[in-house]
Structures are given as C-alpha cells and as structure tokens.
Design a protein around this nucleic acid. Structure first.
Lengths: 206, 206
DNA sequence: AGCCATTTGTGCAAATGAGCACAAACAGCG
DNA sequence: CGCTGTTTGTGCTCATTTGCACAAATGGCT
C-alpha cells in the first residue's frame, strides 16, 4: 500500500465488491475469500486481492476476509460510512421511480427532495415527497448543502439543469438524460442510459 | 482494419459515439471531426480515430466524418440497423418507468411486453401495455422470439427470473436488480445500479 | 495550378492493467 | 508441537490500452 493516487478503474470495482459482500452478509455468511468473491462477480481472485491491497491489509492468510470488517472498510474508503442526501431533478417517470426506489437504503444514500418545473407536477405527492418548484432549486440546494444530484429531465433540458446544479454547489451528478454533460472538472458526472447498455450487447447478437 | 476480434472496451465506446453523433444530427450538423467528437465525449481524438478504424475507413482527410454516414455505419456495426423487441420483467416503479420510457425510439429498441407475477398488477395498464402474467412468460418469449429482456424485479427474485429467461431463449439481459446474475456465457448481461455509480463518485468527495 | 490549413489512418512507443506464482501467515488436527 | 491445507499480499512478467506524431489525402483560396 502506498499513497499514490488510486486508478479510477480500481475505485470503480470497489462498489461491486461491496454489493457482493453485502449480499453475502444477508445470506448470513461471516467469512469469504478472494476466490469466492471473484467467482460471484466474474473477476479474478488475484485482481481482487491486489485492488484491496491498495488500501490496506484487510484479509488473513489461510482464512480470508471477515465480511463485516471488509464491508466496513470499503464503506469507509468510498466515504459511505455516512448517508448522503440526494436531490432528484425531474418528476417524470424516471424521477418518480428513483424517488420511490427503496434500493438506496444501506448503500449510503437517501433521496431528500425532488424538483420539477412543470406547474402540473409541482406540489404533487411522490412517495414521501412533495414535488418542489425548480425555480427554488438553486437556493434550496445551497441552503441544505446537498452535494449530490440526479438529473431525470428530458435531454433537451439536462445541460441547463446541470449548469444550475453546478451553480448551486452540487459536486456529483448522476445523469439519466441521454446526453453528455459539460461540467467543471471538480464536479463528478456519471451516466445511466439503458440504450447504451443494450447497444453494447446487440453487437454480439447477429 | 483486420478481422481480429474487437476488444470489448472499443465496442463499449461505439454507443457513446453514436449517441453524440445523433445529438449533432439533431442540431442539424452535417460533418464533424474526431477532435470535436472527442471534446464532446471527453475522449482523445486519436482514440476515436483508432476505434473507428477497426471497422473501416469512414472519414475523409482534411474534412472529417459525414455525420449521417457515420451514424449509419455504427448502427450497422452494433446491429441496430433494425429494431429489437424487448421484454420487461417486473411492473413495479422501475419496470413501469422503463416501459413508458420514450428514449428507446431511434436507438434500436422497442419494449413490446411487460410481465409481473403479482395478481394485483396482472392486467393493469402501463402506458400502451397490459401487464402479462409471468406464469406465461417463458412460453410467450419463446413464441415471439424476443431475444432481449430487462429485469426489473426485486433482488431476491432476479436470479430466478434470469434462469427462466435463459430457458426462454433470451440472449441479452439488462438487469436493474442490484445483484450479480449467473448466466451461461452465451447470454450477455449488463447491469444498471444507480448506487454503484453514486459510490464511484463519493470516493472523490471528502 | 500551386499553396496552405485541415484531418484522417496508423506505426511505434509509452503507460496502464491483469495475472501468475510463491513466500509468509494462519487454523485445524492428530 | 509439528504437519497439512488454505489463503493472503506482492514482485515480476505479460497483455492490453492509450497517445504521439507524421505521411497521405483533401478542400479552399489565391
């Protein structure tokens, strides 16, 4: 373990390890090995060991890894030993589904507010949330100090929303709109676009 | 250009190029260059040229790429010069949102049927679809010859659904459930899990 | 026609990533 | 307590991926 910067590709695998470990925990498992973990995820055991070794020595020779302990460590590394508040922008089908999604529990996140600019949607109830007017979005995000946002508006409006989010101080954006966003380099952006994934598969179907 | 197998990582970038090109087309652009495309996506121009050159010579020196032509070529390479029918499994929030999603239009896909096992949901109307009983899922998929499916059921049921889909002859699965699926190697699987993307970003937030 | 400004496709070198294989560490057991 | 069967962490090698840099091609302009 050194203090050199960790490659992105390794950081990207940690959440996969974590998800699998949490699954094992749910199955009441106590201990696992790099081999077992690798088989579940489809990654070589050596790679998992090497990835983890970038951050410390979490395993025990001859035994493997204590699931609970490794979960705790990875959560710490990924800074999800806390719960992050998330703002959802767009109360259409996707925004609604995300706002109601139970899957963030225990993964480090919690949707706390949802915005939309459509007068027909403002004030509507979605799960536990009342749709807020996006006219107040920048102010509300600034005031609450929320640092992560999900964009679930049509592609045509996504860049404009992103610009506002940056202005509001948002530091991480998960974008469901199928376009590339321009954002300053200190703002992280990730994308979810099902068509992209599907197209990656149809290449292999004749 | 040779006939050697194309690396996965290159195939994975083609959909990004395509999405950006289609966006340019919408902006009534006729021609682009590897440089411009690269700036939009955040990839070096050389890499784009090299990626594309794996499949043919699509550009013209001194000019660049004709957007329409390049779109057509990439669609052909990715086998989306046709529309693929998709079965959605699970009529909860995510399944419903996906079934109503307008974003597949012009990207090569079309949801044609949605299944659920919950008697309270079977027969319900979701957009243009009536929720089908998943008891008939295997038969219906076999009969219709659908080759791509999206799993939008709770994690606990996802593997079981995947097994049925494999039995039904499905060859590509896009899984929204937050677990790794076991599937034979001739069945492609891709994952969408927003928590994973969020965790990849919180690493960089202190 | 000749020149200039562009831009592609690609050979080659550099950087990055993955995997093998093994010493060291450990648990269980007789 | 020593032996056996595991499993980690890691040095080293191999493979993959990225980027540089340039010849060749092209269009526009004078």
């Amino acid at each position: 373990m050194s203090d050199k910067e960790i490659p992105n590709i390794i950081v990207g695998r940690l959440p996969l390890y974590l998800r699998s470990l949490q699954r094992m925990k749910k199955e009441d498992r106590q201990i696992t090995s790099s081999q077992e973990l690798g088989e579940r995820i489809g990654i070589s055991a050596a790679q998992i060991r090497k990835d983890l070794s970038q951050f410390g020595e979490f395993g025990k020779q001859g035994t493997g890894y204590t699931i609970d302990y490794l979960i705790k460590q990875i959560r710490r590394i990924l800074h999800i030993d806390q719960e992050w508040d998330i703002a959802v922008i767009g109360a259409g089908d996707i925004g609604s589904a995300v706002a109601r999604y139970k899957g963030f529990a225990n993964r480090g996140f919690r949707v706390t507010v949802i915005f939309d600019g459509d007068p027909g949607k403002i004030g509507a109830q979605i799960g536990d949330f009342t749709v807020q007017d996006s006219a107040y979005m920048v102010d509300m995000i600034k005031k609450t100090g929320i640092r992560i946002a999900m964009i679930a508006v049509p592609a045509a409006k996504a860049q404009q929303v992103a610009d506002q989010l940056v202005e509001a101080g948002i530091q991480a954006i998960l974008n469901y709109a199928p376009i590339n966003l321009n954002a300053p380099s200190n703002v992280r952006v990730q994308y979810i676009d099902p068509s992209i994934h599907l197209q990656r598969m149809t290449y292999y179907l004749e």
